[in-house]
């Protein structure tokens, strides 16, 4: 108990007063708030893309000379990401039963996430070679903006998953910490299908 509250408040200059019981741990709650803002960030970018896409009604899309997006490969990659999310759900329940049992599914979730990001990077290189760049058109600009923002979030979340894995191996991962990392990764996983739908399939 003492160790956990020290983790939560990080202030050692004063003994801890009695606190009200928390229904949801503060760090999980804070991360949920953060993902709301992030959801609105992506909503802003995706609807900006939708407005520009709607303006081009009747014209070519993708614009002349621009490659089409690799819909099929990305569908495969999307599946990989969703499976990673499911692996984390398994990790969640395994942790509840016996914490160390979560090591396996947690590793699978992180590795599948890493696979997703690397696969996405390979796609980017191919698209850049085909002449789709940030500057080539609003189409290209939005593609790299939205997918790039998602990739940055994915990398940050994978680092968090890795951190959680190492803490778990040392037996130092608290339920609140696992919950916080989970919320972040579920956000990254769940926002992707929307991007796939609105950017790749539009």
């Amino acid at each position: 108990m003492a160790a956990e509250s020290a983790v939560l408040t990080m202030d050692s200059s004063r003994p801890e007063p009695r606190r009200r019981p928390q229904i949801v741990a503060s760090s999980v709650l804070g991360m949920i708030m953060f993902t709301f803002t992030e959801a609105m960030l992506f909503a802003g970018m995706i609807s900006a893309h939708a407005i520009v896409r709607a303006r081009s009604a009747g014209q070519m899309w993708p614009p002349f000379g621009q490659p089409r997006l690799p819909i099929e490969q990305t569908a495969f990659n999307t599946t990989a990401l969703l499976v990673s999310g499911i692996a984390l759900v398994f990790a969640h329940f395994a942790y509840r039963k016996r914490p160390r049992q979560a090591l396996g599914p947690l590793a699978i979730a992180a590795l599948l996430g890493l696979f997703f990001v690397v696969f996405q990077g390979v796609e980017w290189v191919a698209l850049l070679e085909q002449g789709l760049t940030l500057q080539s058109s609003a189409y290209g600009g939005f593609f790299y903006l939205i997918v790039g923002a998602h990739a940055l979030h994915a990398v940050a979340a994978i680092l968090c998953l890795t951190w959680a894995w190492f803490r778990l191996r040392r037996g130092a991962l608290t339920p609140a910490q696992l919950g916080t990392v989970e919320v972040f990764w579920y956000f990254v996983v769940l926002v992707w299908p929307l991007i796939y739908l609105k950017v790749y399939l539009s």
Partner: peptide, 8 residues
């Protein structure tokens, strides 16, 4: 809830 789109 409102700052995300402007940040974008």
């Amino acid at each position: 809830l409102s700052v995300g789109p402007l940040f974008a």
